[in-house]
Design a binder for these strands. Sequence first.
DNA 1: GAGTGGTCTAGACCACTGA
DNA 2: CAGTGGTCTAGACCACTCA
Lengths: 245, 245
Amino acid sequence: MTLELSVDRGSPVPLYFQLSQQLEAAIEHGTLTPGSLLGNEIELAARLGLSRPTVRQAIQSLVDKGLLVRRRGVGTQVVHSQVKRPLELSSLYDDLEAAGQRPATKVLVNTVVSATAEIAAALGVAEGSDVHQVERLRMAHGEPMAYLCNYLPPALLDLDTAQLEATGLYRMMRAAGITLHSARQSIGARAATPEEAERLAEEAGAPLLTMQRVTFDDTGRAVEYGTHTYRPTRYSFEFQLLVRP
Amino acid sequence: MTLELSVDRGSPVPLYFQLSQQLEAAIEHGTLTPGSLLGNEIELAARLGLSRPTVRQAIQSLVDKGLLVRRRGVGTQVVHSQVKRPLELSSLYDDLEAAGQRPATKVLVNTVVSATAEIAAALGVAEGSDVHQVERLRMAHGEPMAYLCNYLPPALLDLDTAQLEATGLYRMMRAAGITLHSARQSIGARAATPEEAERLAEEAGAPLLTMQRVTFDDTGRAVEYGTHTYRPTRYSFEFQLLVRP
DNA sequence: GAGTGGTCTAGACCACTGA
DNA sequence: CAGTGGTCTAGACCACTCA
């Protein structure tokens, strides 16, 4: 059978984007089966009344997502399954919600503190200057799952406690017009201190999964520094990643 | 000052790639300082005797790497530092070597075993069929750092023990002509069993960092399944990631 | 309004693959 | 050999940002 494809030139949506969305949907729904060839670019362009560069742009975006593979002299193939979620700047809140866990958040601390050397270095502010501090306990199914401690530059965001409990920090930042660009992460493990164990309903000395992260916006400004601890029996980091070509 | 840029049309290296490499080098060396504007695409194209799409392709590749940011109506800016290593499919061997640690590997097991249900599911082979098993201990500074257990489909690769001790598994796969495409990873933590503690010179019950990974080549075939444990006092996962735009 | 990147066209030649 | 993707050109119009 031939794939039904069409573009609407009256739409403000770019033509290459319309095409890539249709192709992605066809792969998702199994209309385009793994391993099948896509047909050459010239013919595809002619069929849709588009130029070849436009069609290439659509295909390239799916190659970048890992859904298609191009081979010179062969053609463009749908990758054999397995690709679902390329690694993104994960929000624990979104992760849990996507897993159907209805996350709950308890804000333990929401205040302004003086930046220690560690915090100042991470955020790129002066030591001793004011920074926001937020400590949260993230629960799922009524059980504590993670303890999140975050520091933010002052005046970046209105950190309303009610909002922090109703949604995630990243969503609030995006809603405030901050364009997240990159993050530097470190994931490790260590034994729980008595205080950490108490907070997470674990035994002292139990293994904890830890993550530290500094997030930058597209101007290169640090917008968040966080040190998080997770109960490894309740949470692990799952992600898919692509090999840079 | 004006940036020195030039392309060699006699070279087999694509023009856009020559340009993107020169720009990347200029950013690396600080000739292009963070926050500085790149000059518009039209003028850049004229200066180099290239067409605008070619220049755009060069710039776009650096935007994808997170080194540049484009803003409509504003221009193209160098990101304010912070971007070094975008997350890639990390090889512990390469990581350690890059850190100047001269990693040593001891191959503990290099044999063929019958696939358990878990291994068969991960590799997409029949339960009970033959698979290669490799167990390695990775050392740095004479201390054990990680215990690596990997399973590979049969006849994929010649797993020479001497070579396994001299280099990493990924390098051997690439050298054998396998094109790595994507991987599914899970990072967690747990307490060491007595056997694990013994292997890694830790105490039983000590926290360990764990990673499981299935790697796929560009045909969608699983080429490796690994379960690794790391000493968290010696190793943590450090990486930078970009927000998908 | 001037300048920027975002999109798009209709061609062209080349390098590689596989029969 | 025929067919494929990889690269490249010389234009065009539009949407957006900022002074």
